[in-house]
Design a protein around this nucleic acid. Structure first.
Lengths: 247, 247
DNA sequence: CGAATAGTGTCTCTCAGACATTATATG
DNA sequence: CATATAATGTCTGAGAGACACTATTCG
């Protein structure tokens, strides 16, 4: 990143053995959503350390790809899903966070659009599972079978990473279009579906009228002229995301 | 960070040559402040690429230190200054951002408390200089000698990194105590000095009465009972930072 | 018409921004 | 008492939260 004198310093202070550079990995936080409830996909560890504990998907960065590319690749390799949006979260670099070796890890927040979740078979994904985020502080996850996972039972420092991600998402909910990434289709959605997406991000229920007013104050939500499937009785209007309001 | 299968994958996809792991560096953004004007310390490059251009200080991470520790060490080595606060900003990983080699760089926002700036001699610091942030978009820096540096003339992608840092600082101004890190002394300051710190962070002038009201609504600013040096005629009261208001 | 979901309107309180006023020190 | 800085007070408009009301569809 900088001067040659850094390179000089580098050559002086490093032994040219491979073990003198940290490995670089990416940790993936794959979030999705269903009727306002936030979900996260995790994988079960097959070997020590933390054997049988649930962990974030992830893997090592390759030499010719960026961290963003590594995150997208690992997400698909380990879960079979594609993200509608990824965002770098934080880099964890504490020596000793992995007891086996020196690993520096770049964490990525990934959002998977609502839809059928089919964790690909035949790969590591056979170990993957979707959890509902039931509580945020302390963290509490619930598996599809109903089992409750407390944050103390997650591998490594992954509970802390997840809490960091949740805080970041909440903070960005109204200032970025992050919640829209949870929508099945940005070109066609009802206000109720949009409200579900925001509720998943914010972690608390919204009041429909106030929600509508606030969203309309920030973003352009254009009517498509079409009408959605009646989940109840009155048929809801379908809208399209059209960017931020000019202020 | 994760499963042994990742390690297996690591062993499969990596050639055990040292060049197959990226080097890991830290980039430092050392900010300070004077009468509401934000300043940044940069170093002049002595060799290509970008010879003679101004760049952020930084250097390679050592194998037994965290990125935070590397940031603090490099700041002191290259500028002779100590930060009152550091905060990880973003990790830049694009292959090819450094034309010489594969370098992954973790950028750190560092805040140096207001006070005498003595860039240490005898080290790389002889090349360091303080710039005033005159404009933020596009970025424009002014050296002590009055020379104007446009963002296009900075080395590497450092202009983008600085703009990212400025946006982050502004965003955190009211939600964290980041502005207080610019104070010479958290235990004794006037409201005017505090306002200068916030003006440096926010990049625009504040109205004293409104500023006081807003600050008091968020933080506990306790009177010390002492009175500061009269910069003008009436003698200002001195205050102490006492944390966030319980809400 | 009753019930269930979709969508609109209204009231109040808080707070940011603009600006006016009072207080304290000095020559 | 004129002046310069420090500190407080007042007015207004925008927006968030709570909640009541209207609209559409079905049996």
């Amino acid at each position: 990143m900088k001067a040659e004198d850094d390179e000089k310093e580098f050559l002086e202070s490093y032994d040219p053995s491979i073990y003198d550079r940290p490995s670089v990995a990416v940790d993936i936080l794959p979030f999705t959503q269903e009727t306002g409830r936030l979900k996260i996909i995790m994988v079960k560890r097959g070997k020590p350390p933390f054997k049988d504990a649930w962990a974030l998907p992830g893997g090592f960065m390759r030499i010719n790809e960026s961290a963003d590319e590594a995150a997208m690749r690992e997400l698909e390799e380990e879960t079979g899903m594609k993200a509608s949006r990824i965002e770098q979260l934080y880099t964890f670099s504490d020596p000793g966070r992995d007891p086996r070796m020196r690993v520096l890890s770049v964490a990525y927040l990934c959002i998977i659009a609502e839809g059928p979740i089919s964790l690909a078979a035949g790969t590591d994904a056979s170990e993957a599972e979707v959890f509902t985020v039931a509580d945020r502080n302390p963290l509490e996850l619930i598996s599809t079978s109903g089992a409750v996972i407390h944050e103390d039972n997650l591998a490594f420092d992954h509970a802390e990473i997840i809490r960091t991600a949740l805080a970041r998402m909440e903070g960005k909910a109204w200032y970025t279009d992050i919640a829209f990434a949870f929508l099945r289709d940005r070109e066609s959605f009802t206000y109720k579906e949009l409200m579900y997406a925001f509720e998943a991000v914010l972690g608390k229920p919204q009041v429909p009228s106030n929600f509508r007013r606030k969203v309309n104050g920030i973003w352009r939500i254009e009517p498509t002229g079409k009408y959605g499937p009646q989940s109840g009785l009155r048929i809801p209007e379908l809208f399209r995301f059209a960017g931020r309001n000019e202020k």
